[in-house]
Design a protein around this nucleic acid. Structure first.
Length: 829
RNA sequence: GCGAGAGUGGCGGAACUGGUAGACGCUCUGGACUUAGAAUCCAGCGGGUUAUCCGUGGGGGUUCAAAUCCCCCCUCUCGCACCA
């Protein structure tokens, strides 16, 4: 009987589905476990990255189920987004049509892979039954001032025809299409994520055990908390002030100039009527004309022009020339920086270039004093304050506190915290997204839609514009409406939400997906949340994971939950490469999962994805690798086919010690129990590759022992038990194969209802152990001893070993170190 | 520049708390079976002057014992980056 994955896999998938094997609800006394993968965007086809991602999560889900947990393992579709619109424009269809066709195709592919989802919970974010709740959240956000409108310079992608969040601009380019992002002054909707900056940062510490350090660091950097002070500098001959933010207020007396960004709001006032106004304007225009990528480029030389104006250093009373400089970022801090050349490298370079004074105000503690004329770079280390009047002699750390005190006493500024994190721009000028439930009314202003009018349906009977512009502003049937407040004629908001809003809470909806009265019940949510194991790509380290954390905290503050963090444990899986590069259509180095499924079956594909490398690491797809996985499956298949008639159907680890009278049987029984132990430990650490290797070893041993054991009654029982164990341990990885082989062994109960095997301590024990003998740490021999042999006799046996004796000739023994049951090291010289 | 991670055979990777380096798999080689091939099975597979000699990016150190711990250096990958 040949192994036929196509036939077997379909049959067992049907069996599990009929039985509802993977259905779950929030009742019962089992402990819960929520296993989740990052849901796919319905782009058309499942790719190998998905297969790997979902295979990892599926092993976790299966194992947890077998270990007695009530497991929630859902799947759904992140269905709004630009590619659907673009594809629709290209193919002359509607985004909904394209999206739902893709979902149907991809759903079939996932089913073909046999993942253990509770399909009853499948959700689709472009379904009004989903996004209506998102609109409800928006209304609540608006009521709390967490969703608001503001006019500000925004990232604009000319190709996508929409704005982008800061998180969606990578090195000045659009994350989606790589176009150079422009800056545009626009009025947009923002989610006030900065209100949660402190908590988003602090709570990262609570995730330290469950999240990779790398991701935590990325989030910390992105949030970017800086503690320092603001200082106000009076402008000479004017009533205005320039306020700066600094983390080094201790260096205030070393501030010899001021630099402001080209986009600084006060600049116009400063340069109006200035002597070289024309040159200054030309310089400012040059900087403002540069896109983000040019601005950020490393080789950008520091440049500036003097405005002709001065401000006053409030601590020294000195005049500080005000410069416009290209290295000052308008969007960070206050857009102005005090120039302290002695203690800041950028200011140092700038001062040297334009011959501005350099004054040392911090001297190193255990080094010769600095001479400003001889310095080659800024001194940014800690030290002792000097040239700072009353602060002289203090450590600069102490100085930071005292200067901050002084600033507060004299109302010149004071302690301040600055964040790199910006509010999240969620407006998109595109069609295929959740309508923002707000209305523009001439008399009432911008007001939220009434809850009872939800959902605000995205109209499906519209035609997309060839240039990608949203059709909504040209669709009166959509935007003409009554004001929810005064009832007068009003216009509905035509911006849609960033698709990252949908993915910020989908994991909550999975807990109660059919609920048509509320987004989810508190019971379901509190029972399942947080997600215990979240598996996905590291590319979402900031975007999705940060937004989701914010959403849960905000919803908590609305009383939806008592939880503050969505994902207790995060597993970031590596990419599937081909010839060392990420698979991509443009490079032509893709492997189509459908083709692999047709050729090898789901079990082989899953096995290879899990065996090739540990989950966090990237791995190279190789034809010979998947062949190897297939070979192992066939090998296991043949073993069971050969022995099915001969050995009894025994549950895992059920052969007794007495059955294993033959030495081979004894060895096999010990290996069987050791494998249960090892696989359990490896899976707990998500080391699926070594877990699979351990089962391979067990199978290899059965191959070596099968003839001898099949001829002995006890041997048969030992074999039967070991086979059963191998199938049970491998079930989470290759479920169809294992179910089929178990049934062919004569079992009537399916594996899907079995629990995880339990090994016996007694079975791990060996009467005799191999002890390694070293001389000065180098391997010189091996001896067999009884496991319970007394120390002295082991040492004696070690010293008596022939090769050891040879190597000890002429040496005197200083010491003998014994690690019981493992090794003896003889120290000699 | 800052932060994180990684350097082990021809390859993917094992070695969890220091204790037999190279598990498991791939590739390759030889053999068996076969008219032949495929498949399968068995054996070998770090290097080597074949002496239990040398070997985990390089150099020091701690230790009876180091891939593993400490210090210095080199290389690579990823993230952030003129952040005041």
């Amino acid at each position: 009987m040949k192994y036929n994955p196509q036939e077997i896999e379909g049959r067992w998938q049907h069996f599990w589905e009929e039985r509802g094997s993977f259905h779950c609800d929030h009742t019962g006394d089992k402990p819960k476990c929520y296993c989740l993968e990052m849901f796919p965007y319905p782009s058309g086809n499942i790719h190998m990255g998905h297969v790997r991602n979902y295979s990892i999560a599926d092993v976790i889900a299966h194992c947890k189920r077998m270990q007695g947990y009530n497991v929630l393992h859902p799947i759904g579709w992140d269905a709004f987004g630009l590619p659907a619109e673009n594809a629709a424009i290209q193919h002359g269809t509607h985004p909904a049509e394209w999206t739902y066709a893709n979902i149907a195709n991809m759903r079939a592919q996932l089913k073909r892979l046999g993942f253990s989802y509770d399909w009853r919970r499948e959700l689709t974010t472009c379904d009004p039954e989903y996004y209506r709740w998102e609109q409800l959240f928006c209304i609540k956000f608006m009521e709390k001032g967490l969703l608001y409108r503001k006019k500000a310079p925004q990232n604009w992608c000319p190709k996508c025809n929409t704005v982008l969040a800061n998180e969606q601009v990578e090195e000045g380019l659009c994350w989606r299409c790589d176009s150079v992002v422009e800056q545009k002054e626009l009025t947009q909707w923002f989610l006030r994520i900065t209100d949660y900056a402190e908590e988003l940062l602090a709570d990262l510490d609570t995730l330290a055990r469950g999240w990779p350090e790398r991701v935590l660091t990325m989030q910390r950097n992105w949030i970017g908390k800086s503690t320092g002070a603001t200082i106000r500098f009076a402008v000479e001959n004017a009533s205005s002030h320039i306020t700066i933010f600094t983390t080094r207020q201790d260096t205030i007396c070393g501030a010899t100039f001021m630099s402001v960004a080209a986009a600084h709001p006060l600049l116009e006032e400063l340069i109006a009527g200035s002597e070289n106004e024309k040159d200054i304007r030309a310089f400012v225009q040059k900087i403002l004309g540069m896109d983000k990528r040019e601005m950020n480029s490393e080789n950008q030389e520091k440049e500036g022009v003097f405005t002709g104006r001065y401000c006053i250093n409030p601590f020294t009373g000195e005049r500080m020339p005000v410069w416009v400089a290209n290295f000052v970022l308008a969007e960070y801090g206050t857009g102005a920086v005090m120039g302290v050349p002695a203690h800041d490298q950028r200011d140092f370079e700038f001062a040297r270039k334009y011959s501005l004074p350099i004054r040392v105000v911090i001297q190193p503690e255990n080094a010769p004093p600095l001479d400003p004329d001889a310095m080659e770079e800024a001194m940014t280390d800690d030290g002792i304050m000097t040239n700072s009047g009353q602060f002289d002699g203090l450590t600069n750390e102490e100085g930071k506190l005292r200067v901050a005190d002084r600033l507060e006493e004299n109302t010149l500024g004071g302690r301040a915290v600055n964040w790199r994190l910006r509010d999240w721009n969620v407006s998109r000028q595109r069609y295929w997204g959740t309508p923002i439930p707000a209305v523009h009314c001439d008399s009432c202003g911008v007001v939220p839609e009434k809850e009872e009018n939800l959902p605000v349906l995205l109209p499906l009977g519209v035609v997309t514009h060839p240039d990608g512009r949203s059709p909504l502003p040209d669709t009166p049937a959509f935007h003409a409406c009554a004001c929810p407040q005064c009832g007068g004629k009003a216009r509905r908001e035509t911006d849609t939400l960033d698709t990252f809003v949908e993915s910020s809470w989908y994991f909550l909806r999975y807990t109660d997906p059919g609920n048509d009265r509320e987004p989810f019940t508190a019971q379901a949510m509190d029972y399942w949340m947080p997600v215990d194991h979240y598996v996905g790509g590291v590319e979402h380290a900031i975007l999705h994971l940060l937004y989701s954390r914010f959403f849960v905290k905000a919803l908590r503050d609305f009383g939806y939950t008592g939880q503050s963090e969505p994902f207790a444990n995060l597993l970031t899986q590596g990419m599937v490469l081909m010839n060392g590069a990420k698979m991509s259509k443009s490079k032509g180095n893709t492997v189509d999962p459908s083709e692999m499924l047709a050729r090898y079956g789901a079990d082989t594909v899953r096995l290879f994805c899990l065996f090739a490398a540990p989950p966090e690491r990237d791995f190279d797809w190789t034809e010979s690798g998947i062949e190897g996985a297939h070979r192992f499956i066939n090998r296991l298949w043949r073993l069971v086919m050969e022995l099915a008639a001969a050995v009894p159907a025994l549950e895992p680890c059920s052969a007794a010690k007495e059955d294993a009278s033959l030495p081979k049987a004894q060895e096999l029984r010990q290996k069987e129990h050791l494998t249960v132990k090892k696989v359990g430990e490896d899976i707990a650490r998500f080391q699926f590759n070594t877990a699979i290797a351990a089962v391979m070893e067990l199978v290899n041993l059965m191959y070596l022992a099968k003839e001898e054991l099949a001829a002995d009654a006890g041997g048969k029982r030992t074999l039967g038990s070991a086979i059963s164990t191998a199938l049970t341990l491998l079930f989470p990885v290759t479920p169809h194969l294992c179910e089929e082989l178990r049934s062919r062994l004569g079992f009537s109960s399916p594996l899907v209802e079995q629990s995880w095997p339990v090994y016996a301590e007694e079975a791990l024990f060996r009467n005799s152990v191999t002890v390694v003998v070293q001389i000065n740490g180098r391997l010189r021999g091996k001896i067999e001893t009884a496991a319970d042999a007394p120390e002295e006799s082991v040492k004696a046996a070690a010293l008596a070993e022939a090769n050891v004796r040879k190597h000890l000739e002429g040496l005197s023994i200083r010491k003998v170190v014994l690690v019981p049951g493992k090794l003896v090291n003889v120290v000699a010289n």
